[in-house]
C-alpha cells in the first residue's frame, strides 16, 4: 500500500529542533512518508507543503509557549486552500505555564484541530492515533 504522508514542522518563531527530529525519525520508522519543513515555519509553509504533496495529515509542534497565537486561523486557511478533510494535530508545550489542560485542549479543538497533545506526550501515542484516524491496519 502507498505510504500515508504527513507534513511535520515547528510553527511560528519557534526554533526548538530536537523534538522535531525525533518525531521525523519515529514517524518514518512507523511507515509514514514524512515531509519535514523544520523549525520556524509559518502556517502557510505547512499548508503549501500539504497541497503540493497531497498530504494526509499536518502535525504541528509548538514548544515555546506561543502556540495558541501561531495556530489561530490554520483550519480556516486549510479550508481556503482546498485541504478539506486534512487531519490537523498539535503538540509540544503549546501554551505558557500551567493552565488547566482540559480548557487548553478544548480551545485548540474549537480552532479545528483534530487532536491536541499535552507536554511530554510520547511519540507512540501520536502514531497510534494517526493510524486510527487514517484507517491504517497492519
Amino acid at each position: 500500500m502507498e505510504k500515508k504522508k504527513v507534513v511535520l514542522g515547528v510553527i511560528g518563531s519557534d526554533c526548538h529542533a530536537v523534538g522535531n527530529k525525533i518525531l521525523d525519525y519515529s514517524l518514518t520508522d512507523a511507515g509514514f512518508e514524512v515531509i519535514n519543513i523544520g523549525v520556524l515555519s509559518p502556517q502557510e509553509d505547512f499548508i503549501n507543503a500539504a497541497i503540493e504533496t497531497n498530504a494526509d495529515a499536518i502535525l504541528v509542534s509548538s514548544l515555546y509557549g506561543h502556540g495558541e497565537i501561531d495556530c489561530r486561523g490554520m483550519r480556516e486557511k486549510c479550508e481556503e486552500a482546498g485541504l478539506k478533510d486534512i487531519l490537523l494535530y498539535v503538540g509540544g508545550n503549546i501554551v505558557v505555564g500551567k493552565q488547566d489542560w482540559n480548557e487548553v485542549k478544548q480551545r485548540f479543538l474549537d480552532m479545528g484541530f483534530d487532536r491536541v497533545y499535552p507536554p511530554g506526550t510520547p511519540v507512540e501515542e501520536g502514531i497510534r492515533d494517526l493510524k486510527e484516524d487514517l484507517n491504517i491496519t497492519e
Binding site: K5, E52, T53
Partner: peptide, 9 residues
C-alpha cells in the same frame, strides 16, 4: 509543473 512526485495530480 505542479505537485511533488506522488503528490497533487
Amino acid at each position: 509543473a505542479g505537485g511533488t512526485d506522488g503528490g497533487n495530480c
